[in-house]
Design a protein around this nucleic acid. Sequence first.
DNA 1: CGACGTGTTGAAGGAGCTCAATCTAAGTGG
DNA 2: CCACTTAGATTGAGCTCCTTCAACACGTCG
Lengths: 243, 243
Amino acid sequence: MALVVDTPVMAPMVRKLCLWQPLSDADKRAVLDLPHTLRSFDAGNYLVEEGDSRSDCCLLLSGYAFRQKVAGAGGRQILAMHIAGDVVDLQNSLLRRADHSVQALSAVQVALIPREAIVALAFSRPGVGLAMWYDTLVDGSLYREWMTNIGRRDARTRIAHLLCEFGSRLEAVGLGSTAGYEMPMTQEQIADATGLTTVHVNRILMGLDRQGLTQRTRRSVIIHDWDRLCDVGDFSRDYLHLD
Amino acid sequence: MALVVDTPVMAPMVRKLCLWQPLSDADKRAVLDLPHTLRSFDAGNYLVEEGDSRSDCCLLLSGYAFRQKVAGAGGRQILAMHIAGDVVDLQNSLLRRADHSVQALSAVQVALIPREAIVALAFSRPGVGLAMWYDTLVDGSLYREWMTNIGRRDARTRIAHLLCEFGSRLEAVGLGSTAGYEMPMTQEQIADATGLTTVHVNRILMGLDRQGLTQRTRRSVIIHDWDRLCDVGDFSRDYLHLD
DNA sequence: CGACGTGTTGAAGGAGCTCAATCTAAGTGG
DNA sequence: CCACTTAGATTGAGCTCCTTCAACACGTCG
């Protein structure tokens, strides 16, 4: 297998961590040298299943994945979306037992990194460790915003908010822009992420289109008026801690 | 001011961290020696306000506090409850700027610990650092459960779930039991924590009483049948990571 | 082509909301 | 110790946003 030297596999992780905390060259090198094995998953497959005790955590190299939890009555809640560059499972690999599952939304490629290597690196290089700690704190910030979204906003606002978050995050990694992007989620998944039903999501999305805010095709969104959409979605990017 | 040697101020933090990760005696000592200043807040006062950039994080020594975020339309979402022993603000002190606020629910006493001391300790003593990292991960686990609660369970289930979580957590720190406890929240706060309205919370609570599951007085709950309440609340304590 | 996953639409019903009034307990000040 | 105040709990009536159920449309893929 050929090693492509100029674009190392672990580069997305370096880029992500640098968002939270500038890293020294030695720190970057250490992250790039993290031991890992590559792995692919088809859409729909589980990267982690509730109850698993995983000994490695995965860095998402390409594609989309999401976290989910199922409630007793059968409903499923989507808890977070993950895009290329995200370190997906500190949570489930550091804690002994996965309290939720992570599923591939599209075909994904991941790098599996042994838990011990992560921990060792975090404590031998405080710069890296702090960046990783920040990363888990920012995850928490997104959870809090989602909770607010689901608990205290009406359907239209919730969905607009989700579209805005996606736009901002995809833009940050160069996979889209505030003018539009590939939308990887189905309406059912949007429903499960916002605490709504598929039918209602559909009606709201059609409404946004009709009102000239967005223009959807099967798997993409064009956003005609970003500022207005942010307004409708009660969206402010602060909680993403991107800047 | 007399120093009480046999029950050090920082003891609750040691107890909490040991839940996640056994600490060596030297580690414990180091936590106990963390520099700090004591401070009291009256009920309703803010420990942290959205937008603040705090340079210290607080350990809750007594009383109750909660995190909250306000949505554009004016609704407030309560994001988490904190009880004695909780380290309340790694999130807001490590990240540059608070993305939500923390408010005292009752009169509280806190120990303010400088951010730098926390970080220095975390990286000089990996045992402690790992325990603190776990702590932020467990916070995340609670957020995920709450999101599921709000997004995918009906009102009765949500409220029963909240009562169960409280019972389990209070029991873990010896402030109550699964047979009952002092309930510090008003019905308005329960509403804001569960994404409901005060009126509806009231009706559901009365229902639980009428059905013989609970028996409330002004500020306490007696739980007649814990197992059944857990059932109604779709509650399983796994996500608390207490054992 | 047929079948399946996804999106779209209609009609009817209900869980939870809103508004507004009343009740209760626990202060608080005189 | 009592009148007064106030925060919180309780109740009723009407309404609405969202759900449920069920059918149909569309496009993609074997």
